[in-house]
């Protein structure tokens, strides 16, 4: 361990740097080769995480000649792929279904999850609440399997309805626990005071509990919304009608199953359609964009949301 301050002499450079960064004095900068190894590792990790996405976005805008040639990064751009896709219609329908699913599903899920969380936040006072809590927790470890769920949805007459993608997964036990933990850590004096003033449980819930819980509700809204937007298998399982497919199923059909995108076949007397690769990339981008849009706004809540659930769960 090197000395910290030496008489009136100026502090050595590494010491000044860690002071500036608010790091403790015993924390030394590692030797140069460790630092370069770490930098290399970090650069590689960031590149590997981000480059595939950047590549797909860039290629979706690539000019036809470059897309056909297969370049590492396009330099000439065109919007033809998006024009073709929106004229085709199927992708638009998929996006509309997914949007509806995400908005309606997230709203309903948040309402019912936070209601149950508030009801179960007072297991000591409410007889039976503890039994319900255990019943809910058990579902995190034991689930029925694909076929019994399919048979239930079928018996309820939900097949081929977008509701089949919302109702069976309305409340996630994990999210409920996270919200419940947040509720239980709210300042109880406020709630008690309202109770003494004669406010009913619903009034307390709507006027005090929910407004105080915005951070956790924001993260849970994100988790639910991402879940609904990304719905794939359940749609495959429950929905046969292509008009009701969410975007992920449409994406799978066009990009992985090799179904031809409408408008991508050459027609006589018309300019040649954009190459299939750009069309596929454009569909991927359209399915990803909503997530890329909300991500930065909610990112700062992640730690809070995940942690209250996971560590204290």
């Amino acid at each position: 361990m090197s000395a910290l301050t030496v008489g009136g002499k100026p502090l050595p450079e590494p010491v000044r740097r860690r002071r500036a960064a608010g790091l403790p004095p015993w924390m030394n900068a590692p030797p140069w080769w460790v630092r370069s190894l770490k930098t290399l590792a970090i650069v590689l990790i960031v590149l590997m995480s981000a480059y595939p996405l950047i590549y797909v976005i860039a290629m979706s805008f690539a000019a036809p000649e470059q897309a056909r040639a297969g370049v590492v990064f396009p330099t000439e751009y065109s919007l033809d792929a998006y024009r073709t896709i929106f004229e085709g219609g199927t992708v638009t329908v998929g996006l509309r279904n997914s949007l509806w699913l995400t908005v309606v599903g997230t709203t309903l899920s948040l309402v019912f999850t936070s209601m149950l969380a508030w009801g179960l936040a007072r297991t000591r006072q409410v007889p039976g609440a503890k039994a319900v809590l255990i019943m809910v927790l058990a579902t995190m470890f034991f689930s029925a399997g694909i076929i019994p769920n399919f048979l239930l949805v079928k018996a309820l007459g939900l097949l081929d309805s977008l509701w089949s993608l919302i109702i069976p997964g309305l409340i996630s036990a994990f999210n409920m626990i996270v919200i419940r933990n947040f509720f239980m850590n709210l300042p109880q004096e406020l709630i008690e005071a309202a109770r003494i003033d004669g406010a009913g449980e619903w009034r307390i819930f709507l006027r005090i509990v929910l407004p105080l819980s915005k951070p956790v509700l924001a993260v849970m809204a994100l988790f639910y919304a991402v879940g609904y937007w990304n719905t794939y298998f359940n749609a495959l399982l429950y929905i046969n009608d292509a008009e009701k497919w969410p975007i992920q199923v449409v994406l799978q059909q066009y990009v992985l199953a090799g179904v031809t995108i409408p408008g991508s076949l050459p027609v006589a007397d018309q300019p040649p359609p954009p190459p299939g690769v750009t069309l596929q990339m454009a569909v991927i981008v359209l399915a990803t964009v909503p997530i890329l849009l909300v991500y930065p706004f909610l990112q700062r809540y992640f730690t809070k949301g995940v942690l209250t659930g996971a560590i204290k769960g």
């Binding site: 149950l116 508030w118 009801g119 409410v126 019943m135 239930l152 109702i167 449980e201």
Partner: peptide, 15 residues
Amino acid sequence: AYTFIVPGALFFLVF
């Protein structure tokens, strides 16, 4: 309190 609990409990029971 049961008005909060019952809908969720029914959901888990059924689904």
